[in-house]
Design a protein around this nucleic acid. Structure first.
Lengths: 118, 118
DNA sequence: CGAACTTATGAATTGTTATTCATATGATAA
DNA sequence: TTATCATATGAATAACAATTCATAAGTTCG
């Protein structure tokens, strides 16, 4: 016998209702997802990990992650559009850095999570 | 005039070296990226947000996020393969829940980050 | 065992996204 | 202003991923 009890059924229905009630609206979900997506490509994650050591210009970033300048620029654009990194011009160079502490926190939490199962 | 100073150049070179030294190996980066990717689709993020209210079976999840059963199953597989959710069988049903606190933390940090700029 | 129910999976299609190459833009110095 | 250096961008191709449909597999009940 493995029939659901009356109470269990009820509890689950309530949880569905709660989930529906608490669900952020579509735009917010899309924006959140887009940010995770920005971080979710190895090439871009690598850039972020490099930037977690401090501000770097495009050329140095390119050295740090390996690859070509154009690719890195495209990737930086994606990261910047999603507020993951910020930039400032310094003479001929453009310096990039992680946009704020939240991003670093997320990466660190993700790293911890990674260590849990191996 | 906007020439780089000698010290600045040095500092940057050091930072490149540091970034290279601290860079996790390729496999680890790929795994980390894959996890972010798992979270980075609106449909899957929605599932996670629903699960943040508590354990749910596939049918209820399907109700909570809207969509069809097959799609939700596929999405759950991706989440599970990436250790974002876990499951247990309960009679005919399979109950899914968020794998651990790290995942919830990440989502909450991401939500905070979202609120910073609007 | 067979029927009913819940979840999972394979294959195909469609839609997205990364990367590359060529070149444009912006900045500085002579 | 022109040459040079640093970065950004557009367009094209190529790699990848999401969704759907049909159906298989696992579980319980009679």
């Amino acid at each position: 016998m493995q029939q659901d009890s009356e109470e269990e059924r009820c509890e689950h229905e309530e949880r569905v209702a709660l989930a529906l009630k608490n669900m952020p609206d579509s735009d917010k979900i899309d924006e959140l997802a887009a940010r995770f997506k920005a971080i979710s490509e190895p090439s871009r994650l690598k850039i972020l990990l490099a930037l977690s050591c401090g501000e770097l210009c495009v050329e140095h970033l390119t050295q740090a992650v390996g690859g070509n300048q154009s690719a890195v620029s495209h990737q930086l654009k994606t990261l910047k559009d999603n507020k993951i990194v910020k930039s400032r011009r310094h003479g001929k160079q453009v310096m990039y850095s992680v946009s704020d502490g939240h991003v670093l926190t997320m990466i660190n939490v993700a790293k911890e999570h990674l260590n849990c199962d191996e």
